[in-house]
C-alpha cells in the first residue's frame, strides 16, 4: 500500500517536473475522457456569416456564402509523450455544416493525456467511399445525414461543398458551386482529393484529457473558407463558376488543404 502511494507520488512528481508551465492534473493509465473539437468557419479575419456576409476573394470578386459543408474523418491525436492516438474508425466520421447551430464534435473514450496536435482527413477515405451500404451509417448515410454530400450517379462522397451568390458567376442563378470530392476512382484511377491535414497547437498549449472532467478540453480550430478560393491557384468565380467532378477540382482542394489551424485550446 505504502509502496503504491510512493510510486504514485514519484510519478506525479515526475509529471509536474516534465510539464514546466502548466500543471496538468495527474491521471491513471487506462483513464479515459472526452475531447471537444470546434470547427469555427471564418473568412479571413472575420466570422463567416451565411447568406449575409459579403466577401472579396484574391481575384477581386465579391461573393457571399450560402452553404458550407465538409467531412472530417480519420482523426488522430498527437500526445505530448510522442505517441499518437487514433480515434476508432467507426466513431471518426463527421459532417461539419455551417448551417447547423454547432460545428463542435465531441470525441469520447479518449485515453487521458496531454494532446498537442490533431490530424484528420478532409473528406472520406477510399475504403469507406467503397464500403457496403450497411457500413455507411450516421454522417455517411448517403440517403440521410449525408444527403447532398453524395453523388448518387457516380458513387462517391462530396468532401467539401461551398456555394454562394456572386454577381460575376456565369450560372443562370448567379451562384458559384464548388462540390469537391474524388477518392481516386473505383476501377480506373482518377484524381484524388482526399486531404490529410495535421495541426499543431500554438505555443505550449495542450488539450488535457482527463477522466470525469466537468468541462472537456476544447480544441478550437479556425477554418478559413476564403482559402477555398485563395491559395496556390487563386480561383476566379467568373472563370470557374461551377467546379464538381472535374480535374480542375484538384486546384481547389490544393487551396483548402491549408484552411485549418488550431487557434487555441482551453481546458476549463
Amino acid at each position: 500500500m505504502f509502496r503504491n502511494i510512493f510510486v504514485l507520488f514519484a510519478a506525479s512528481l515526475f509529471c509536474f517536473a516534465s510539464c514546466k508551465k502548466t500543471t496538468p492534473l495527474e491521471f491513471q493509465p487506462g483513464d479515459k475522457g472526452e475531447l471537444e473539437v470546434e470547427f469555427d468557419n471564418v473568412i479571413g479575419g472575420v466570422n463567416l456569416q451565411l447568406n449575409t456576409g459579403s466577401y472579396t476573394n484574391a481575384s477581386g470578386e465579391t461573393f457571399k456564402v450560402s452553404l458550407l459543408n465538409y467531412y472530417i474523418s480519420n482523426i488522430k491525436l498527437q500526445n505530448a509523450d510522442g505517441t499518437t492516438y487514433t480515434v476508432p474508425r467507426d466513431s471518426s466520421y463527421f459532417l461539419i455544416k455551417e448551417e447547423n447551430p454547432s460545428q463542435l464534435i465531441t470525441l469520447r473514450d479518449i485515453p487521458a493525456g496531454n494532446y498537442t496536435g490533431i490530424s484528420f482527413v478532409l473528406g472520406v477515405d477510399s475504403l469507406k467511399s467503397t464500403a457496403p451500404v450497411a457500413e455507411r451509417t450516421g454522417a455517411l448515410d448517403p440517403a440521410a445525414a449525408g444527403a447532398g454530400m453524395y453523388w448518387s450517379w457516380n458513387s462517391g462522397y462530396i468532401f467539401l461543398k461551398m456555394e454562394g451568390p456572386s454577381d460575376v458567376a456565369t450560372s443562370g442563378d448567379k451562384k458559384f458551386r464548388y462540390h469537391i470530392g474524388g477518392f481516386g476512382g473505383f476501377s480506373t484511377p482518377m484524381f484524388n482529393n482526399i486531404k490529410q491535414i495535421s495541426l499543431t497547437a500554438p505555443g505550449t498549449s495542450m488539450a488535457e484529457v482527463r477522466k470525469g472532467k466537468a468541462e472537456a478540453p476544447h480544441i478550437h480550430i479556425m477554418a478559413d473558407a476564403s482559402k477555398v478560393m485563395n491559395g496556390p491557384m487563386n480561383i476566379s468565380i467568373a472563370t470557374n463558376t461551377t467546379v464538381m467532378v472535374s480535374p480542375f477540382s484538384v486546384n481547389i482542394a490544393n487551396n483548402y488543404v491549408s484552411m485549418f489551424s488550431i487557434d487555441h485550446i482551453h481546458n476549463d
Binding site: P142, S152, W153
Partner: peptide, 22 residues
C-alpha cells in the same frame, strides 16, 4: 459489378438512390 450505362455506381445497394433522386 457496375450499374448504369456508364457504370457510375459499383454496388447494387447504392443504385436506387440515383433514380429516386434524379
Amino acid at each position: 459489378q457496375f450499374f448504369f450505362w456508364d457504370g457510375g455506381v459499383f454496388n447494387l445497394d447504392l443504385q436506387p438512390i440515383a433514380p429516386i433522386e434524379n
